[in-house]
């Protein structure tokens, strides 16, 4: 390990400590904001973990997010909280493996449509089960978790996600992923086991997303499928990761934070025009920054240097 990476790690650790200390200085509204923001940072980074290198656009974010939240809803009264989180992660993993095995051979737009359908499928299955087996649709979550507790859990999850993402980039896996992203045929000719690699990555990303849903669920007290399987979550995650640049470690972070703050500012100041402005922002991102903020910055700096 070079001195530079050590320095970087130390700096990241300091930032993490500063963020963790925030609830002691800032008011409850700041904590609420940070919960939302950290949640989306983790979602976007986890999304970028799989979709960045492989360029598979997944709209299944909310499927796993909802699985996590629902698991907490179902088990919060019967199991201790850490075990509930563990079970949620395991369910997310199992679903990701089944889905991954059956679909990662799909490519392009077929994969997008499949993942979008997956979220709807899981929502309908949960609804069907609740209607026909348990006879209730809503689930109550009465857990003694404070907003600060939720924030710290999300922060820890964010740190873990960045470590995983950074770690993968430094291994042979990271290299192999870059090859897959550039050309799958070449990758398979190089002897890379494409399917297994993609599956492992998809599963990792899915488990993290599941945990975000599970950690945030106690904030809502009451959940039902239409609340936790809200497709907006998938779209927001996607646009945040794209804005930042999904194939870079810090890209999703740089997309999630400004967009989250923008949405918050819009809904506080322009509650009645929010959907219109949101649509315009989406269009602007796609037209002006198709490769993300980081890539745009680099190309601009690069040009500046050439002059």
């Amino acid at each position: 390990m070079t001195a530079r990476t050590l320095l970087g790690l130390a700096f990241a650790g300091l930032v993490l400590i500063a963020l963790a200390a925030l609830p002691f200085f800032a008011g409850p509204y700041a904590v609420t904001l940070m919960i939302g923001m950290t949640g989306y940072v983790v979602l976007a980074t986890a999304w970028g973990l799989f979709s960045g290198p492989t360029r598979y656009v997944s709209l299944a974010t909310v499927a796993f997010f909802g699985i996590g939240a629902y698991t907490v809803g179902v088990l919060s009264e019967t199991l201790p909280y850490p075990l509930v989180l563990l079970v949620a992660a395991l369910i997310g993993l199992a679903v990701a493996l089944v889905v991954g095995l059956s679909t990662l051979r799909l490519a392009g737009v077929y994969f997008v449509i499949f993942t979008f359908g997956l979220a709807e499928l899981i929502r309908q299955v949960v609804t069907w089960y609740e209607v026909n087996v348990t006879g209730t649709l809503g689930r109550y979550i009465f857990l003694p978790v404070t907003p600060e507790g939720i924030y710290w859990q999300l922060l820890a999850l964010a740190a873990a996600t960045f470590l995983i993402s950074w770690g993968i980039g430094r291994t042979r896996w990271g290299l192999a992923l870059k090859v897959i992203g550039d050309d799958e045929v070449v990758a398979s000719h190089c002897g890379i086991d494409i399917t297994r690699l993609k599956l492992a990555l998809f599963a990792t990303s899915a488990v993290i997303i599941t945990l975000v849903g599970a950690i945030q669920a106690p904030r809502w007290t009451y959940i039902e499928p239409s609340i936790v399987f809200n497709p907006t979550i998938s779209f927001l995650t996607l646009i945040m990761a794209l804005l930042g640049g999904a194939d870079r470690l810090w890209g999703p972070l740089l997309g999630a934070i400004p967009l989250f703050l923008l949405f918050e500012w819009l809904s506080a100041n322009f509650p009645n025009h929010y959907p219109i402005i949101l649509g315009l922002v989406f269009i602007a991102i796609v037209f002006l920054l198709p490769k993300g903020v980081l890539a745009a910055l680099e190309s601009r700096l690069g040009k500046g240097g050439a002059k």
Binding site: P28, T32, Q216, R219, S267
Partner: peptide
């Protein structure tokens, strides 16, 4: 405020109203 039919948005809006 408009909660846009999402729980998380509602929670944040109520917190904003209160604090």
């Amino acid at each position: 405020y408009d909660d846009r039919s999402t729980s998380e948005e509602l929670v944040r809006a109520v917190e904003r109203l209160a604090t």
